[in-house]
Structures are given as structure tokens and as C-alpha cells.
Design a binder for these strands. Structure first.
Lengths: 201, 201, 201, 201
DNA sequence: TATGAATGAGTATTCATTCAT
DNA sequence: CATGAATGAATACTCATTCAT
């Protein structure tokens, strides 16, 4: 009675996701065929379909990969004594993270995912959920910064959150289109202009 | 080749591009078939292929559409007496432009174009050329603002330009994913935080 | 402007149906692949799909083939002066027709169609419509025979019609399962037992 | 191999056949997958393949199910003193049996089996054997009726047997295609027209 | 005996593109 | 210039069956 362990199943799923991720980064969601994926994973088509119902589901699964870890970072920053500094550190942390992510092709997959989401309701939902999570956390911190007079409290916290998100996604986009973009300098500009701690509203 | 024919040709090309644009906005570059396009344009497949060599070329053509007009606006701002104000106005102008563009589906097409470009060298080149044009213009203005002491001159002008671009593209992305995003409030936040004229480096 | 004639289109459709019919007779609806069909027709897959939306539609089209001609025969018998003789001739005509139809594989296709219809709503509808047409015509004639005292008028005309239909379909089935069945002797038995003109109710 | 095991085996086989039968009635031989079958049976694929070599064998096994019982009925009628009456009772018995069989889906499975048999040699053999058994028994009784002058002895006994079989299979077909068919009225028509005991050749 | 993960050949269908008319 | 019938390579997905455990 060979009931396979859950770890085994999880490992196989991950193996497929990883392979798919590489294919998507290289050839795009449509350019990468299921054949590409199951060959990259070293499996048969049937094996892949044993773990995923469709290519679509694999695409979706390629997206959840680091969301949880990201939220953990936000949570840690949520109740800092100095929200503005926390935001700065947060921004810096994620912007610098793009350097490593780019190497793995994550930027390429994400940018393609945005476009795909506009046309693929399942993916849209996934992305919207992620975005919402980020914006909730950011709004919370921004409101605290406003309460402390660190940020002009006439500004809409959600919109400020979107602006910070733009700073991040805009760099992810530019770095995907041109890997030579200098993350360090961009980060410095963002810190200086956007959330300068020397200034008060 | 008489002049009449040239105008006729241009009109036909535009007719096809417009139809394709609508299809792309609705179904995506891959979801929209050539059939969708030539039916939307009210033409036969042969007619479309008379004016465009391939679907790829139509995709590319869907992208040049407002580039020239955008550059004109930059050019006008290039030699303003008050570069920081000019930048602010520029940002505001483009951000607010997203409201109307979204209605036409331009945001949807652009966001999809970014992803496609990562996988489609021809489109990548087109987009990179546009980006470069924007960054050149922005860098020029930023350097002038730095020379006037309006912006911290220790910052990399190109990176500041990228930051402004991110502000724009980040909103375009968020608005494509969620058309309810409030452009006005976002714009206000951007003006207040990013290039506050009341502050000097 | 090469607008192809309607005859051309109809001929192509028929070419495909004929090819499919041969494939279905030989290998069955499921055993025959689309590849079998378009190769048998000497066409490309795209060409076949230009004329038919799906394999299902081809299966359905393989069924209408001689329905109209059959109904014509019924119509001719409808108002005979001697309904019982007309019924006998009708039965004989169709039973003997099975000899030739069997050679063409029509019996094989029909028998498979019955089974398929139980699982394929589109085909079921087609077959039910045919059956209804036959039963209507038969009932009409039977009622006239009953009015003339040629058939026991306590019998349900529809059921008598079904009985005659069974005589036909039962032979079609047996001949499909065993092509050596002697149609002539069967027909003689049917005439003698079923609608013997020497007997009166 | 202990007796307990044999009973166990038989039970398991029957469990699988029953499940398959339900699946076949509902979805057809091709529409029902092995997965449907082993899930309906509450077993694993391996378990099913332990008891049956292939799907084909399961299909075949779904057919033998009531053959033996049918033959018993024939045997009982074989040497009746009044063959014509025996035939009438036989026909009536089986026709009325269709009412209950239809409820179980047996008609649906049988009709599909005819079509499948034309394409599946194993099934063809099974069905032909059954048919042959029925025809042998019928011919025997018919010959006795002819000897007694109850049936025109110029008719081919085998063909008369086929005619009676058609009466049965034709109704099974029509009832499968339309469950509302009235078996009682059909049976009355068959008795009155086909083997009227009041008439002598 | 039983499990269920794995196999992989096979299938219907699509769709960018061509070219005879 | 225009048509639309034809092409055919390519693709996602299925499903009967096997076999290590």
C-alpha cells in the first residue's frame, strides 16, 4: 500500500513549478509549451497533469511563490515606533531584492503575469489578492506615519501606498526590460525624494 | 504611385491598427486571432496581409501610436525656466492622461506589451526606444533642476528619471488591473511627496 | 474576386462526408480519427474544419444522407387505394434496399449511430426527427388500412408502425452483424406473417 | 486457492461489472473512462486491472449478464405441445421484459454494444454467439410449429426466427431512443399481427 | 492483493499565413 | 488590390495501462 508521503507530493509539485518558472521566464507564458515544461521537469505529460489540472493552473502557481515571505516582512514593519523609517527600510529592502530576483527571472515572469492577468481571470484574482495585501499593510503604516506627523496627513493613505508600490513595480518593469538598470542608484533616489526623513509635512 | 493611393493606403493601415488595438485590449496579443482582427476591421485576411507582413508587425504598429505626441510634450518642457515645476506639470499631465487612455484600452495594451516585449525582440526594441526617449528628456530636465539647486545634485539624474517613469508606469499598471484606482488622489500624492516645490535639497 | 460557387462548396462538403462515411463504416465513429477522415478525403485538417465545425458535426451530417429520399417513397404510398398492399410494398422496398445499403456500409454506420445517439444529444435529435417522420407516415397509412378493415382497428396505429419499423431496423442490425443474412427469405417471411393480404382482421 | 477467495473474487468482479454497466449506460463505452469505472466501483485502477485484463474485457463482460437466464426460458419453451402459443408467450415475455430492463439501462448498453461490436471483434463474437443461441432455439420451435401446420411451412424457419428477433431488438432500440414507447401496446400489436393463433397457414 | 503515481502514444482542433483566381 | 479556400505545423490535454512499493 504505497501511500506516498505529502512531502513527496509537495516536492513533485515544486519541481514542476520550478521547471515551468524557468520556461516562462525564457519563453513567456504562451511561448512555453507544456512540452517544454514537462521536459524541463524531466517528467511525462501525464505526470504533470497528475499534479496540475491545466497549464493555467501552473501559471497561477508560478505566482504565489514568494508572496507569503513578502507579507511576513510587512508584518514585521507594521507596528514599528518610527513608521517613516520603517517604510524607507521596507522600500529599500524590496528594491534591493529585485537585484537577486532578476537573476532568477522572477521579474520577467511577473511582468508577463501582469499582461496575462488582464486576459486571464484566474491570474487576475491571484494578483489582485496579492496587491490588496500589500496595499493594506502599506496603508496601515502610512496612517501611523501620518498620525505621528511624519507624512502630510491630507494625503490619501491608499494613494501613497500605490505610489510606493509604483516605485517598486516600475523598477521591476524597467529592470526586466533592461537588466543593466542600477538598482542601488534608483534606491538612493527613491529614499531621498520620496520619504526623506529629514523633512516633515 | 499617385498621392491618392498613398492616403488610401495610410487609411487602410490605420483602420487595421485600430481594429487590432481594440482586439488586443479585449483579448490580449495571443488571445486575439488574426481572424478577430480582420473581422473587426471588416476586411479579408488577404487584405490585412497586403498592408502588414505579419501579426507581429501589427502588434508593433499598435505601439507607436502616441509616442510622438508624448515626446512633443517633453520637448516643450525641456527648457523651462523652472525645471522642477515643469517636471511636476509633466508628471501631472501624463498621470491625468491615464484616465482617458484607460477608457480606450491603451493601458491594457501597454501592460500586455511590456510582457510581450520580454519575449519578442522586435517589440522590445520599439519599447526600449520609447523608454530611452523619455529618459533622455527627463534626465535633461532633471540635470537643469539640479543645476538650479531644485533637486539634490548628488542623485543620479537617470535614476531620478526612472523614478518618475515608475510613478507613471506603476499607475498605468495598477489602473489596468483595477480601473477604479483614483488618478486624482494618486497624482496629488505624487506631487506632494515626490517633487514638492516647497522644499529644496 | 474569386467567390467560389455554391456548387463548389457543396461538392467539397459532400467529398468530406463521403470520406467520413467510409471511415466510420470501417472503424466506427470513435475509431475513425479526424486524420483518417481528412486523409481519406485528400484534404488538409484546416480544409475539413473550414466546412465543418467539429467531428461531431461530420458525424451528424453522415446521417441525413438518404432521409429525404426515404420520405419521398412514403409520401408516394400515403394515399394508395389499397393501404395494406402499399404497406407490404413499402416494407418490401425498404427491406430489399438493405441489400444495397449494406454494400455501401450504410448499415454499419446506422447501427453505430443508434448507440452514439444515446450519448450524443445532437445525433439523438437528428435520429429522433427521422424516426418521427417515418412513424407519422406509417401511422397515417395504417389508420387508412384500419378504416378499410384491412387491419384490426383495435390495434394502436403507432404501435403497428413501430412494429413495421422494427422489422426493418431489426434486419438492418442483423445484417450488419452478419452480412450473410438472406434478405429475400426474411422479406418473404415478413410479408407472409406480418401483413398477409389474404387475411382480414 | 481456498473457496473463500473464489467467492471473494467473484464478488469483486461483479462489483466492477455493475459499476461499469452503470457508467456505460450513462456515458457510453467510449465516454466512460476507466477512471469513471474504478471510481464508481470504489476501487483503485490497479484493483480493477487485477480482475480484468483490459477495458475491452469489461465491456465484453457487461454483455453476458442475462444471456444464461434468457436461454433457460427458451429451453423451457422448446418442447411445448403448442409451439405457436409458446412462441407467442416467449415474445410477450421478452417484450415485456424490456420495460424493466430499460429502467436498469440495459437497453442503452445493448444498443451501444451492437455498434461497438461492428468495430470490436471480441464483442462481435460474444454477440454473435448469443444471437446464434437465440436463433437456434427459435428455429427449433418454429420448425415444430410448421410440422404441426401452425406456421406456413414454405417459410424459412431461420428467417422467421430473425423476424421475431427483429420484433424484440427493434423495440429495444426504439425504447432506448425514446423511453416513453408503450411496450404493452407494441406487444399487443405484435401478438395480433405476427403470430395470431386464430389463424392457420 | 492493493495502491496510485507515472507513462506516453494518441487526438481534436487552432490559426498565422499563402496564393490561385 | 481583394478574396477566402486551403495549408499544415503546432498544441493542450486524455486515458488505458503499468509497476514499484
Amino acid at each position: 500500500v504505497p501511500r506516498v508521503s505529502e512531502e513527496y507530493s509537495a516536492a513533485r509539485r515544486q519541481q514542476i513549478i520550478d521547471a515551468a518558472f524557468r520556461c516562462f521566464a525564457l519563453k513567456g507564458f504562451h511561448g512555453a509549451t507544456m512540452r517544454d515544461i514537462y521536459e524541463e521537469a524531466g517528467l511525462s505529460p501525464g505526470a504533470v497533469y497528475h499534479y496540475f489540472e491545466s497549464k493555467d493552473e501552473i501559471i497561477r502557481a508560478s505566482f504565489d511563490f514568494d508572496y507569503q515571505r513578502s507579507l511576513d516582512v510587512f508584518t514585521a514593519a507594521r507596528d514599528s515606533d518610527d513608521p517613516l523609517t520603517a517604510l524607507n527600510e521596507l522600500l529599500d529592502f524590496f528594491l534591493r531584492g529585485l537585484e537577486g530576483a532578476a537573476a532568477l527571472g522572477a521579474g520577467r515572469v511577473n511582468v508577463q503575469g501582469w499582461g496575462e492577468a488582464l486576459v486571464n481571470p484566474n491570474l487576475l484574482e491571484t494578483i489582485q489578492r496579492v496587491l490588496e495585501g500589500y496595499l493594506d499593510a502599506l496603508s496601515h503604516i502610512i496612517r501611523r506615519a501620518q498620525a505621528l506627523g511624519q507624512i502630510d496627513d491630507s494625503l490619501d493613505p491608499l494613494s501613497v501606498g500605490r505610489l510606493l508600490l509604483s516605485t517598486y513595480y516600475g523598477l521591476e518593469l524597467q529592470k526586466a526590460l533592461d537588466p543593466d538598470v542600477d538598482v542601488g542608484k534608483y534606491s538612493a533616489a527613491a529614499r531621498a525624494l520620496l520619504l526623506s526623513t529629514s523633512r516633515r509635512a
